[in-house]
Computed example of a mutant assay.
Amino acid sequence: MVLRREAFLGQVKERGEYETEQEAQRAARVVLALLGAHLVGEVRAQLAARLPEDFALILLNPLQSAEPLTPERFVRATAAWIEGATEQTATWDVGAVLSTVADAAGQDLLAQVLFQLPAGYDLLFGHPQPT
Rank of each mutant, 00 (worst) to 15 (best):
T89W: 04
V94D: 01
L57A: 13
A24D: 03
L60C: 10
Q88H: 12
V113N: 06
T91L: 14
R4M: 08
W92M: 04
F115T: 12
A28C: 02
A79T: 15
E21M: 09
S65Q: 06
E14N: 08
E14W: 09
E53I: 12
L57M: 07
Q64I: 15
A27R: 08
G41N: 14
E17T: 14
A77I: 03
L57E: 15
R15I: 02
S99Y: 14
A119L: 11
P68H: 10
Q116M: 07
E21W: 13
Y18I: 07
A104L: 14
A105V: 14
R4Y: 14
R76S: 14
F55I: 04
Y121I: 10
Q22K: 11
L32C: 04
A48H: 02
M1A: 14
G16M: 09
R29I: 03
G84Y: 12
V113H: 01
R73K: 15
T78Q: 04
L51Y: 02
P128M: 08
R26I: 08
A56Y: 04
G84R: 03
D108G: 11
F8K: 13
R76C: 06
A80C: 11
M1W: 10
Q116W: 07
A96M: 03
E21R: 13
E87W: 06
A33L: 10
A85I: 00
W92H: 05
D54H: 13
L57W: 10
E67F: 05
R5K: 13
V101T: 04
D93T: 00
R15D: 05
A48S: 02
A96F: 05
E53R: 08
L60R: 11
H38R: 11
V40W: 04
Y121D: 12
L39G: 00
G120N: 05
P68I: 15
I82Y: 04
A104D: 03
V12T: 09
R15T: 05
A79D: 11
A119F: 07
T100Q: 03
